[in-house]
């Protein structure tokens, strides 16, 4: 009973904070409204008994949104919300699309023939969830993870304007690298 009430309260808070993301002018407020929404989702995951996943969502989303605030303020045209600016684009089509999607999902939820729960929850639901999601595919996932990470590193390397020739000279033999920022290791 208590967990059902809590689930509804968290769900309402999550949706409210999600709506607020688009109502706020200030990028700082929008980012942290999104964080609040995601923390409510973490609460829902905790309610499902997936303790590890819930806590990890709190950890990851907090750091992610703190870094995201920096980028939002760097790139959006009206970071502090001091001038009016709409966060909404193509409102009519988006509203129609959202309504249709909501109707579709709601129909699915109400009409699907859900299986009855049998047995009891496992001792460690996170472990069981991980095994059932990607138990046989863990090698694929590991490879994919490494490939993604390599892609990130490669993208950053390609995007950097300064390369090793700028730092160490044309013959790569400079005694110390020529960096725009002083300090650090060995300099």
């Amino acid at each position: 009973m208590l967990s059902a009430v809590l689930a509804w309260v968290l769900a309402l808070c999550a949706v409210t904070a999600g709506v607020l993301v688009f109502r706020f002018d200030s990028m700082a407020r929008a980012t942290f409204a999104l964080l609040a929404s995601l923390l409510c989702v973490a609460g829902e995951v905790l309610l499902l008994g997936l303790q590890y996943l819930g806590v990890v969502i709190v950890l990851m989303m907090t750091i992610e949104m703190a870094v995201m605030a920096v980028f939002m303020i760097m790139f959006m045209m009206n970071p502090a919300g001091l001038m009016p600016m709409a966060m909404l684009h193509n409102t009519r089509a988006a509203a129609a699309l959202c309504a249709a999607l909501f109707a579709l999902l709601a129909t699915g939820v109400l009409t699907a023939d859900w299986p009855r729960a049998t047995g009891r929850p496992p001792a460690d639901p996170t472990f069981e969830l991980g095994m059932s999601l990607m138990g046989p595919q863990i090698l694929t996932m590991m490879t994919l993870g490494t490939a993604l990470f390599a892609t990130i590193v490669a993208t950053v390397v390609l995007a950097t304007r300064r390369g090793r020739y700028d730092r160490w000279g044309d013959d790569l033999r400079a005694a110390r690298p020529d960096d725009p920022a002083r300090g650090g290791v060995g300099r």
């Binding site: 942290f32 964080l35 303790q51 590890y52 806590v55 709190v58 950890l59 907090t62 750091i63 703190a66």
Partner: peptide
């Protein structure tokens, strides 16, 4: 908590948001 270490890390990460 069964995931106490992760909890500790998650709570101190809130300091990022708080200080900023």
């Amino acid at each position: 908590l069964g995931d106490g270490v992760v909890w500790f890390n998650a709570m101190e990460a809130l300091a990022w948001a708080a200080v900023w």
